[in-house]
Design a protein around this nucleic acid. Structure first.
Length: 426
DNA sequence: TTTTGAGTTGTTCGA
DNA sequence: GTCGAACAACTCAAA
């Protein structure tokens, strides 16, 4: 009998909880990854940077496994069919994986758990990608928080009561199954091509995090950690990051807590995927002008800070956090385009795309979310530029051509206030 | 149950 | 140029 470890969004060998539990048993462990054809077929761009990133991360794991006399088993299929195949090929005692909290992942895992149970195979899952999950940080009355500050207070209290333990999974590498190497598929084998992917190594930058509070809002400085993509795919351990954040930067620790706050919100309020967290904001009469949306996507709004951000996104798959807020406010409030359109565009383009954070932040910008920005708070792109990019270094880095403003600020602001007021009053 | 204090990230206006 | 108030009034969390 063997055990199976299924890599999902935890693409690392070190400090991986489910992997640790799989490897500490007597049975040899077969490491697998499934390129889910349900998900891949939805990706329009065959040079998707995220697929490339996953592919590269798997390659690194594969090489380490080969060095240990083992091999990564990769299947290109639906998870259901992939597991059927594997359980036919091997005598599987149990499947190990880490929790995944998105609504579609929960549904997938529930179905697979039933299937595995019917085959008498255990399905062991563990908390790994967060410090506190699901219902671990709740109000005294047992209901979930919908405001960040009290959530973060209790989160920190819980952390204090439960010191972080890391898991030395990499030291158990000898317990992987010994095999001759399985074929490692190329990007072409799974229907994709090499992208122009550039991403930072998952390195902790102590000096940067110490200055984080002062420099994080300046888009021309590389003042943000750039670790989001590694958190997204689990190429870095959240436990190791939080341990360091606690002693380095309260501000940065808060950003990690925001990540868990939005994950908790999505878990308890899955309706936010399609609808406003606060239902009255679903009454907003969006203009949804297709040409204007196209101009926003293509970085042709005529507002340099907005266009710079969109250009950065289109070219790199990343956008500085301050600029994300500015372009989101511009789309929803200046152009009165449904936040879901913007959310979908970010989902397609962002290398660090994460449903919970993307949805939470878009709803924050649109004013429709929990703990959201009040609707009358409308970013003025010029004021934001004066404050955060006064020498226009960031703008000049990304904007080559100038366009006439798509809409006049004062007019757009007043129009937005009227439309929102009407929706909220009804 | 009622009350009280507080709530990521702003802008504009007028003194 | 700087500063404080208004924006509009609501909802949440906790005592």
């Amino acid at each position: 009998m063997i055990n199976v470890f299924w890599f999902r969004r935890d693409l690392r060998l070190h400090d991986n909880i489910a992997l640790f539990h799989a490897l500490k048993n007597d049975e040899a462990v077969l490491p697998i990854f499934i390129f889910d054809t349900h998900i891949l077929s939805d990706l329009k761009n065959k040079k998707d940077k995220r697929v490339d990133f996953i592919h590269q991360s798997l390659q690194k794991i594969h090489e380490k496994l080969i060095a240990a006399g083992s091999s990564l088993y990769i299947v290109n299929d639906t998870p259901q069919k992939a597991l059927e195949k594997i359980t036919q090929e091997f005598a599987v005692k149990a499947v190990y994986a880490n929790h995944d909290y998105e609504p579609s992942a929960i549904e997938r895992d529930e179905k697979l758990a039933k299937y595995l149970q019917s085959k008498n195979i255990a399905f062991h899952t563990f908390k790994d990608q967060v410090i506190f999950e699901k219902s671990e940080v709740m109000k005294a009355d047992g209901t979930p928080y919908t405001v960040f500050t009290p959530f973060s207070k209790i989160w920190k209290q819980r952390l204090h009561e439960n010191p972080i333990i890391t898991f030395e999974s990499e030291k158990l590498i000898e317990n992987f199954i010994k095999t001759s190497p399985y074929k490692f598929p190329s990007l072409q084998d799974i229907g994709f091509e090499k992208s122009e992917l550039i991403y930072p190594d998952p390195e902790w930058n102590e000096a940067l995090i110490k200055k984080y509070h002062d420099t994080r809002n300046i888009p021309s400085i590389k003042g943000t950690s750039l670790l989001s993509v590694h958190l997204r795919f689990g190429t870095i351990s959240i436990r190791k990051l939080v341990k360091k954040a606690v002693v380095t930067s309260e501000q940065w620790l808060n950003e990690l807590i925001w990540r868990e706050f939005f994950m908790t919100i999505l878990y308890h309020f899955p309706h936010v995927v399609k609808n406003s967290f606060k239902s009255k904001y679903d009454k907003i009469e969006w203009r949804n002008n297709e040409q204007e949306f196209k101009a926003w996507c293509e970085a042709k709004t005529g507002y340099p800070i907005v266009d710079a951000g969109m250009r950065e996104l289109n070219e790199t798959g990343f956008m500085h956090n301050r600029v994300r807020m500015i372009v989101a406010s511009f789309l929803t409030k200046h152009l009165l385009i449904d936040w879901r359109w913007g959310e979908a565009y970010f989902a397609e383009k962002l290398l660090d795309y994460e449903l919970s954070a993307n949805n939470g932040n878009w709803q924050w910008a649109a004013g429709s979310g929990c703990d959201a920005s009040p609707y009358f708070r409308i970013f003025n792109p010029e004021e934001q530029t004066k404050k955060f990019d006064p020498e226009e270094k960031y703008i000049r880095r990304w904007v080559k051509e100038k366009y006439a403003p798509i809409v006049e600020h004062k007019f757009a602001r007043e129009r937005c206030l009227e439309v929102y007021k009407k929706a909220v009053k009804e």
